[in-house]
Write a protein that binds this DNA or RNA. Structure first.
Length: 442
RNA sequence: GCGGUCGUGGCGAAGCUGGUUAACGCAUCGGAUUGUGAUUCCGACAUUCGCGGGUUCGAGCCCCGUCGGUCGCCCCA
């Protein structure tokens, strides 16, 4: 017999876990709203060339994409990251023809990458991200970082470090790459295999090597700083100044380079420094892109954004022992005895639900003991007991679970008594009366 | 893509150098107690040990393969 299981690197989310997600998503929507960001949803797959553009050297694009041919012989790719699709959309919908720049977007979207799964790394992961497109201003760079931080800090995270760097404009970076390749031309021969690969693919990453970082050639390597033109340098200084004025501590790390090729100027990564975080420590990261809009056929407008992995955020919260899970809670559990009472419980439950009370009841007519245990497990605040006596008299017993206070009331007073006990501003629509005629009396 | 490690009921876990009814704990359900959440007691709950094949008189325990988890590398959110 076949045993069905989720594909590698994917997961089912439900129960207490999904409640955490909902909490994060709610927070994201609240914060982006006050920061003035609008949601954007772009397709989960795009034409492959949206993600894989010329001369791309990144692993994400070259080794990890889910690319397939559809039945019409189109090459499509499941989105591995959020930015490219949004820029495509921005240009396709000619949003640049808007007087109020910049455009500020946020998204919550699954991303697909074919990688070996690990803690904090899934084949389907979910990103909260933002993009600010249409203007280039250090204030925006700072705002973007600040928005991301507000999310993780509101959740209570403390073990954070903001790493920041500048790659300068495209020409600065190219010049620097050239200089690096020249510098490492001979030394690379006795470096590790990874470095040899990096030398070809992304020379900037050689500097980040854990094996050869003591090597004299590494120490004497040219610095990106020396290849920045005056404008690039001034821009970065300006970003740092604003962050400092906002009391955001950053660590300038001149080895920080990002995984996607399109970044220019400011790049940043916010990492968890908690020891239990595992090796995937980046909670969110991003940077500025000067040329992406132009590459998609739009005007020369700059943008900046970040992606935050929800799965990874959850790992980071876990590492800091921050529990954001909400306890399940129920307003009312109706305990019923006998078929007639159970049928009535159904009617009563519907009535209470339409009046805004979260209500459960027992469908099966199990023992009192079992029903009370369920009420307890569901964290019911109030139990309503309906048995033969109550059915006869048109009454109900209401029991406040935490204090064990118990009162007997007429049907018509149930709502009143509940409001009195629960007192949580439920909506009480007058038009929604319990229909006594509709009761089941078989 | 490379290397290490692991895979027994809903959960946690025993299972000795292969020997035959797969412990135990938690949870769940029923009863003692036909109307009240605790405690206690009694009873129920894995034709089966991720999956497939092989060795053997006999495999949860051995071998091969495969799928999956996990950790590190690479890389990234």
């Amino acid at each position: 017999m076949a045993s069905y299981q989720v594909p590698r690197g994917t997961q089912d989310l439900f129960g207490p876990e999904i409640r955490k997600w909902q909490k994060i998503e709610l927070l994201v929507r609240q914060l982006t709203d006050v920061f003035g960001y609008e949601e954007i949803r772009t397709p989960e797959f795009e034409h492959t060339e949206v993600f894989k553009r010329e001369n791309d050297s990144s692993d994400v694009v070259n080794k990890e994409m889910y690319t397939f041919m559809d039945r019409g012989e189109r090459s499509l790719t499941l989105k591995p990251e959020g930015t490219a699709g949004i820029i495509r959309s921005f240009v396709e919908n000619k949003l640049y023809a808007n007087p109020d720049m910049p455009y500020k977007f946020f998204y919550l979207s699954p991303c697909f990458r074919y990688e070996r799964p690990q803690k904090g790394r899934m084949r389907i992961h979910h990103q909260f991200g933002i993009e600010v497109i249409g203007d280039k201003n250090p204030l925006i760079d700072a705002e973007v970082i600040s928005l991301g931080l507000s999310v993780v800090q509101t959740l209570g995270m403390k073990d954070l470090k903001v790493l920041i760097n500048t790659l300068g404009d495209a020409s600065s970076r190219e010049a620097y790459k050239h200089a690096l390749k020249e510098h490492f031309k001979d030394p690379i021969l006795h470096f590790c295999d990874d470095c040899k690969r990096r030398y070809e693919q992304n020379p900037l990453r050689i500097l980040d090597c854990k094996v050869d970082h003591e090597d004299p050639a590494m120490v004497s390597a040219p610095k990106l700083r020396d290849y920045l033109n005056a404008e690039s340098e001034a821009y970065f200084e300006s970003v740092l100044k604003i962050l400092k004025a906002s009391d955001i501590d950053v660590e300038v790390n001149d080895k920080l380079v990002r995984g996607l090729d399109y970044y220019t100027h400011t790049v940043f990564e916010v990492v968890s420094v908690n020891a239990d975080m595992g090796s995937q420590s980046t909670v969110f990261g991003g940077g500025r892109y000067d040329d992406l809009v132009k590459d998609f056929g739009g005007p020369a407008l700059s943008g900046i954004g970040f992606g935050m992995g929800i799965e990874r955020l959850l790992v980071a919260l876990d590492a800091e022992k921050i529990d954001i899970s909400e306890e399940e809670s129920t307003d009312v559990f109706i305990v019923s005895m006998g078929q007639e009472a159970t049928d009535y419980a159904y009617q009563l439950a519907n009535f209470l639900r339409l009046n805004g009370f979260m209500t459960h009841f027992d469908y099966y007519g199990r023992s009192f003991k079992a029903q009370f245990k369920t009420a307890e497990r569901k964290k019911a605040k109030v139990a309503i007991i309906i048995g033969e006596d109550e059915m006869k008299k048109g009454q109900a017993v209401l029991k406040k679970m935490n204090t064990q206070t118990q009162v007997t009331v007429n049907e018509g007073e149930i709502l009143h008594q509940l409001s009195h006990w629960l007192d949580e501003g439920h909506v009480h629509d007058e038009s929604c009366e319990l229909d006594h005629e509709g009761e089941t009396h078989e």
